[in-house]
Amino acid sequence: MSPEDFDFVSQLIKKRSGLVLTPEKGYLLESRLLPLARKQGLKSLEELIAILRSRPEEKLLHEVTDAMTTNESFFFRDTRPFDLFRDEVLPKLIESRQAKKRIRIWCAAASTGQEPYSLAMILNEQAAKLAGWQWEIVGTDISTEALTRAQSGMFTQFEVQRGLPIQLLVKYFKKMGDKWEFDPALRAKVKFKEFNLLGEIGALGNYDVIFCRNVLIYFDKETKGAVLAKMAKMLPDDGLLFLGGAETVLGITEQFKPIAGQRGIYAVVK
């Protein structure tokens, strides 16, 4: 791929998704867009880029963004954030939300659904304490394809073996042919919406906890700051933000501060 083509495509993707592709990530463009070019009946990536330059249709632009922003995900990814949510965050929420009996969680990069479904299982395991409560998990992602898979609730054998304890597989999944289906009743409590983090965030409503893990890492500093500012507005005074292990708010915004001893969790500063 020529440097001009790389610049053109990386600018296009940044504008549409915020994803910053540095030249050393050029291989990602090739590995992800070549299958898309072939799907379009094109012989090469160059042909696809020529079309993107000359007659860019929204559907194709969407598919290009989709292909570049779909990231791998697995159940209870990194384990620790979910342990912290279950053992530290949730008990406090149950205490502080006694009057409203309502908990809302936003997974801002839900991908193929493993993160929101992991949280749904944690909440369901606390069913006794949450009797009479309303809890809602909203999973959003920029990728239509990822969300379609998330909504289907179907996972491969490989996917259910990455991070999901076997007791939870037995309890919440049913084998359907060579796939595993996540419990439909619990699935119904997780809502999925297509959403671009660069877009207007207000329509999504307010949340008690936001999970935005392993997303900011792909954005430049300015975009990170803009996204975090929007999220700060959606949280109440005691709202919390979960970021990925390699992400931080330090040097980007003062609207969040790390919580001592709870790596990856940030408290909103109002």
Partner: peptide, 18 residues
């Protein structure tokens, strides 16, 4: 824990961690 074959190092590592 329980691993369903075929398996790879990633799955074994995940299960051993769990």
């Amino acid at each position: 824990e329980y691993i369903m074959k075929p398996f790879d190092s990633e799955i074994v590592q995940a299960k051993f961690s769990q």
